[in-house]
């Protein structure tokens, strides 16, 4: 029966049965209890619901669950439990890249995708990558400082 979707979520296989047009976002938050992925707008503008689908950053509010069948999904919970998270998370906090936190999981997901393809992105590359993650608190400057500190390996003053 095709109204069942089976996918790998943060490394383990999960099965969803129900409306195949259910938003991946709702499946993650409600069926899977993974509330680190946030809904900010529900139309793919704010990026708060960003997840990695087959390694590509996407808005989970715009992915019907039927399309992740047989695919690999990584959420903030999965990313935060691996070895690469610590340094990025720490530097985001330390450099003022985190204020209210509502955009933060999505920002982390996008930055992980960016760093995967470019371990030392320029400021311009970070700005372009983050254009789909709206932040209303930081003015983005703290996030940019954090990535610069991470890839430059420098302690800020």
């Amino acid at each position: 029966m095709s109204e069942r979707s089976t996918f790998r979520l943060n490394g383990r296989e999960v099965v969803y049965e129900g409306d195949p047009l259910a938003r991946l976002l709702d499946v993650l938050r409600e069926a899977q209890g993974l509330t680190g992925t946030k809904e900010g707008c529900g139309e793919g503008e704010c990026g708060s619901c960003s997840v990695l689908l087959e390694g590509a950053v996407v808005c989970s509010c715009l992915v019907p669950v039927l399309q992740v069948d047989g695919r690999e999904v990584l959420t903030i919970e999965g990313l935060a439990s691996d070895g690469a998270h610590g340094a990025l998370g720490e530097v985001l906090v330390r450099e003022g890249g985190v204020q209210c936190g509502a955009c933060t999981p999505g920002v982390v997901v996008t930055l992980r995708a960016l760093l995967e393809r470019d371990p030392a992105p320029s400021r311009a590359a970070v700005r372009e990558a983050l254009a789909g993650n709206l932040c209303r608190c930081t003015g983005y400057e703290g996030i940019l400082r954090a990535v610069a500190a991470l890839v430059g390996g420098e302690e800020s003053a």
Binding site: G44, C61, L62, Q67
Partner: peptide, 25 residues
Amino acid sequence: IAGCTDLLVSKTAVGWSPAAVVDLL
């Protein structure tokens, strides 16, 4: 259906619920 970047916005707005969908991806 394909990338769904417009479709799911309107689905949320109007409760789009066709009898069946064919994923083209």
